[in-house]
Design a protein around this nucleic acid. Structure first.
Length: 595
RNA sequence: GGUUCCGUAGCUCAGUUGGAUAGAGCAACAGCCUUCUAAGCUGUGGGUCGCGCGUUCGACUCGCGCCGGAAUCACCA
């Protein structure tokens, strides 16, 4: 519609003022709520053609468009703004076209689909997932759904950071204090078990360094010479050398942890098409670095370490292989990227990783480009902000983290309490109820996270918990359940309906308002895909639900005696419900039929 | 110190090529269930859009300079 209007404005200027207009001077936007009209043309930029006041100019153009474009039924000019009113018939025709289409996402497809890898989650196998990972997983998964809905070929991938000194920490502590404890024996989830020993290690290590410091040692030296640090270095060396005992322990504990992760992913409703392990890819990275060194893209220090000099790009020197030949974080990511390009030939690779690693990804891209990989242009760091607690950042070492499994369980529990209080599900079986509590609890959590602009840091207050009223997931789910309820009632009453609504039917303001909002859905999906922004969709769903609830409150649907009106309201309700369902589906949020 | 990001109501957040009187929710207060689900709807109060200068017919939005906060600049990941 906007583009048609633009054409009409262009035509008007040509005929009225005999001037050719460039597109960027035509600003058409949706009319603000407090004014009458549907689309607004900003006339200020056109004054140079009309050589007249904003009011006169708007008036003249408005007149022309109304006379020459039947879809526009009227106009008004306020200060420099020409508000064009679209005829009810046009809106009704539009509504009929979407009402007969069952899939609101059909029109979102891009003309040139791409192959896009989305990497998210990237956990370390030494501790369980926390709220930060939840934000990561939800963003990554939603991004996948949105891009896939637009017709792209999207591959969900995960890179498991399963090697390195931090992994050895939980292993060493388990060896020392574990007494053969397993998830089976303790009944503890594997990732939580490993996390317990990781914390134990950190605690003892801290005690040791503090003791050395109080004995008069420098802090850095104390950290390096603490007995536990020595032991852990030995263990890492053994791991790198492939020592069979260490490898067996590593495999055993990692399998516990990964099993625990799988459970959390399942609860959260996210999954992956391909999982990479750092323990595999770091070797590829090492080979790449060495061959790049031979091609003189990198340089070697006297101590044998290998570096990239990125100072010409405003970055620093970056270490890629240690003097002892072992790999660092960057080495692994280089290897993973090259492997992925080889396996999938992606156009884009989106890394869903926290903003603390902005520098890392800048360097990663620069190094790959320097190495001659042209596809490195397609790497994109989807950088999201931290989730903070009211008292500041979460720190797993200090135990001030919000555990993912706990939070998910708490949300479901809250949903149960709220739901039972309202007591609307008394005729459901326990199993059915549990399923609804799950959907609502998770819906609240997911919406809470996804409605916020990903780039921004956000605060989570565990004491206040997550709301179920107002701008929340359950509010939108409730709107959906309400509509479903109307249809159950309609069936009981033997009321049938169809999308054959007469286009000359006079719809009310609220109904037209809903149709206008519905029209924005496909654009919102496209914008969310282009801008990698699930929050746009979350906010859209809220607006739509809010508008529908007002409509629902003000008008009766089944009670209206005019069959055409009832039909329209039922169809409108149906399209709102499918649109809400699609929008929330793109966020990874399920909708309950009742609540 | 360098680089990047953020600063909007008491709190949590919207506000996307610059556009009209800056919007929601929570919290507070006042109303609305004999009627399709009240997890809803309606109303009241609450703002120097961190501060200043500039560009513009027009700035929360763009530029520059301050102030405040975060992240990062490791032979950690």
């Amino acid at each position: 519609m906007e583009s048609i209007l633009k054409g009409k404005v262009k035509e008007a200027i040509r005929i009225l003022y005999n001037s050719e207009l460039s597109d960027d001077l035509i600003q058409i936007q949706e009319t603000r709520k407090d004014f009458k009209g549907d689309f607004t043309l900003v006339v200020f930029p056109l004054l140079r053609f009309s050589k007249n006041t904003p009011e006169k100019t708007g008036d003249t153009i408005g007149q022309y468009i109304v006379e020459n474009f039947p879809a526009i039924s009227g106009f008004n000019v306020i200060k420099g703004f020409l508000n064009l009113e679209i005829s009810d018939k046009w809106w009704m025709d539009f509504f009929r076209s979407i009402a007969s289409d069952n899939d609101p996402l059909r029109k979102c497809k891009v003309t040139r689909p791409e192959t896009i890898l989305v990497e998210y989650s990237s956990p370390n196998t030494n501790k369980p997932l926390h709220l930060g990972h939840i934000r990561n997983n939800l963003l990554g998964f939603s991004l996948y759904r949105i891009l896939a809905a637009c017709g792209h070929n999207v591959i969900k991938t995960n890179i498991v950071n399963d090697r390195g000194i931090h992994i050895c920490k939980s292993m060493l502590a388990w060896l020392k204090y574990g007494q053969g404890e397993t998830p089976e024996i303790s009944g503890m989830k594997g990732d939580h078990l490993a996390g317990k020993y990781y914390v134990l290690f950190e605690k003892d290590y801290k005690a040791q360094t503090e003791e050395l410091i109080s004995g008069g040692m420098e802090e850095t030296e104390a950290r390096n010479s603490a007995p536990l640090m020595k032991e852990i270095r030995e263990m890492l060396l053994k791991w790198e050398a492939g020592d069979s005992e260490v490898m067996a322990l590593w495999k055993k504990m990692n399998s516990w942890v990964c099993k625990g992760f799988d459970e959390t992913y399942r609860l959260l409703g996210v999954d992956f098409d391909k999982i990479y392990y750092e323990s595999d890819t770091y070797k590829i990275g090492r080979d790449i670095v060495i061959s790049a060194l031979e091609n003189k893209v990198l340089y070697r220090n006297p101590d044998n370490s290998i570096w990239a000099d990125l100072s010409s790009e405003g970055l620093d020197q970056k270490l890629l292989l240690r003097s002892d030949g072992t790999a660092v974080y960057m080495t692994q990511d280089l290897g993973t990227a090259v492997l992925r390009q080889k396996e999938y030939g992606f156009d884009k690779c989106i890394y869903v990783v926290g903003n603390e690693q902005n520098y890392h990804f800048q360097v990663l891209k620069a190094v790959l480009r320097r190495m001659g990989y042209k596809w490195s242009d397609g790497l994109y760091h989807f950088s999201y902000g931290m989730v903070e607690l009211p008292e500041g950042k979460m720190k797993s070492r200090e135990g001030t983290v919000v555990d993912a499994d706990d939070l998910i369980a708490e949300m479901k529990e809250t949903a149960r309490v709220v739901s039972l209080q309202l007591g609307k599900l008394s005729d459901y079986s326990d199993e059915e109820k549990e399923e609804i509590f799950r959907k609502i609890g998770l819906g609240a959590l997911k919406y809470f996270i996804l409605k916020v602009d990903p780039r921004k840091n956000m605060t989570f207050n565990p004491a206040e918990s997550i709301d179920f009223n107002g701008n929340t997931g359950p509010f939108i789910q409730y709107t959906y359940a309400r509509i479903k309820s109307v249809f159950r009632k309609a069936e009981q009453m033997g009321i049938s309906y169809d999308s054959l609504i007469p286009s000359e039917l006079k719809a009310g303001e609220k109904e037209i308002g809903l149709i206008k909002l519905l029209r924005r859905f496909t654009d919102t999906v496209s914008e969310a895909a282009a801008g990698y922004s699930p929050s746009l969709l979350a906010n859209y769903c809220y607006d739509l639900a809010k508008e529908y609830n007002q409509f629902y409150h003000d008008f009766t649907i089944l009670g209206d005696n005019d069959q055409d009106v009832r039909n329209l309201r039922l169809e409108l309700s149906k399209v709102v419900s499918t649109t809400l369902c699609s929008g929330m589906w793109l966020l990874g949020i399920e909708m309950p039929e009742r609540m």
